[in-house]
Each structure stands twice: as structure tokens, then as C-alpha cells.
Computed example of a mutant assay.
Amino acid sequence: AQAAQQVAAERKRFRITKEALSICRRDVRKLISAAMEEGAAGDWGHIEEMFLGLTGRIPRTPTVADLQQILEEMEMLREEIINRLEVQPDSENMDSNAVQNERHIQNSNTESSNELEPSSRKEQGAKSSPAIRRTKEPIKAFPLGMVLQACPGIRDYGPSGNVESWRDLMSAAVVVRSMLGVSPSAYQDACEILGPQNAAAVTACILERAGHIENAGGYLRNLTRKATCGEFSLGPMLMALLRANGAPGRKAS
């Protein structure tokens, strides 16, 4: 009986390790492809060679130890790629007036009570909370191409029905913000804490998951609060959506 239990446990461990490696491989492949398409800085040809080298080391009939070793190295490669892809918001290449225009749009709508998301009185008062106004290091942004791969649905709300720049994404996010019932104050707080680009990217992510999020405004406020404590990163959210977009039969939100 003990031997049978050990065999069952070993099979389970093998299956879990194999599935984890498969997911990690897909992540790395998507990240490399996104980096190349975006033209991100870095020797992506060399990184792709490293990836192919790792996949080539997987034996035809691997043991758990074989898979575990390659999984650890693949996870390290994924982390390295994510670190390379994290870039400071490219504010220098954006017209500073564009950001001001986005804020003007948000501020001009602050009196529209029908756009306020359902929330408790305490949550509505959160916009004046000192914690929200606390200064933090800006959250790092990912390439626009990766955001659009993860969140294709946001394209429909850009100027002329497409998103081709960060300015387009921020314009689309303002439209989506209103559509999802996120209050102007909640979005403005997100822009101040996350940065305008990341706030737009998060809004795109929320749009993709709209069917699973009951209160988009409260969800955005919660992420903003986490960001003030250094507990929020855009990477995992994008990676989850990239995986979902790879699933057969998935339809954009």
C-alpha cells in the first residue's frame, strides 16, 4: 500500500512539474515574441537561443528531476526577460500636453454623479485619503505591444477604432473608464499613483476581465492602494491575460 502511495505521489509530482514547465515555456515564448515585435532594447536573438537551448534539453522520457532542473532555469529566464522588459514610462517621447489633456478630461467629468461606481461611503471618501496621496516610486511600465497583446479589447475604443500609441491607449482608457462605471476620482488617483500609462494599461486589463469583476471602480481603487504599499506589479496581470489570450476559442471582451 505504501509503495502504491509513493508511486501515485510521484506521478502527481511529475504531472504538476510538467504542467508548470509547459506554462513557463509558453510565458517565455510569448514574452520573447512580444519583445521582438515591440522592438524592445536587448539581444533577443541571444535570449531566444537560450530558450531553445533549454527546451532542447528536455529528454524524450524525462524524469521529475530532469523537469525540475529545466523548470528552475526556465523560471529564471522568464524573470530575467520580465526585468528587461520593464521600462520606465516613456514620458520623454510623449507630448506632455497629452497627459494634461487626459487629466483635463477626467477633471471635467468629476461632477457626473451617474458615472460613480457603486461603493461604500468610506470608499467614496478614499479620494482624500493621505495613503492614496503618499509619494511612491513610479510603477514600471511594459511595452505597449505587450499590453495590446494581453488586452486586445481596448483597441476598439481608441481613436478611429484602433490603438497605435500610448496617447491612443490613454484616450481609449478614458472612454472605457466611463463605460465600466469607474469614477473620475478613482481613475485620477490611479493616474497619480501608477502613472498615466500604467493606469491606462490596468484599465485595459480590467476591460478584458470585465465579466469577472463585479465593481470595476472598487477593483481599481484596491489596486491603487496596493501600489502605494509597493504590493502591485503590472507584470503578473499582463502574463495572466497573455496566457488567457492563448486559449483556444477565447473571444475578446
Rank of each mutant, 00 (worst) to 15 (best):
A8F: 08
E10M: 06
K12C: 06
R13N: 01
R15L: 00
K18I: 00
A20P: 03
L21F: 08
L21A: 07
R25G: 00
A35S: 10
G39S: 08
G45R: 03
M50I: 11
F51A: 03
G53Y: 04
R60V: 13
R60T: 13
T61Q: 11
T63L: 05
V64T: 09
A65Q: 14
A65L: 11
A65C: 06
D66V: 09
Q68M: 03
E72W: 03
I82F: 12
M94C: 04
D95Y: 06
N97S: 12
N101A: 14
R103D: 06
N107P: 00
N109L: 12
N114Y: 02
E117A: 12
E117Q: 12
S119R: 13
R121F: 14
G125S: 13
K127T: 12
R133C: 03
K136F: 01
K136M: 09
P138Y: 06
I139S: 08
A141N: 12
P143S: 06
M146C: 11
V147F: 10
P152S: 12
R155N: 10
D156Y: 14
D156Q: 15
G158P: 05
G158V: 10
P159K: 03
S160M: 07
A173V: 05
A173R: 04
V175P: 06
R177H: 11
L180R: 03
G181A: 10
G181S: 10
S183Q: 08
S185C: 05
Y187R: 00
Q188L: 15
A190F: 04
E192V: 00
Q197I: 02
N198Q: 08
A200R: 05
A201E: 00
A204E: 02
L207K: 09
G211Y: 12
H212A: 14
E214K: 06
N215Q: 12
N215S: 14
G217C: 05
G217P: 03
T224G: 03
R225V: 02
A227F: 10
G230W: 13
F232A: 13
M237Y: 02
L238M: 05
K251G: 07
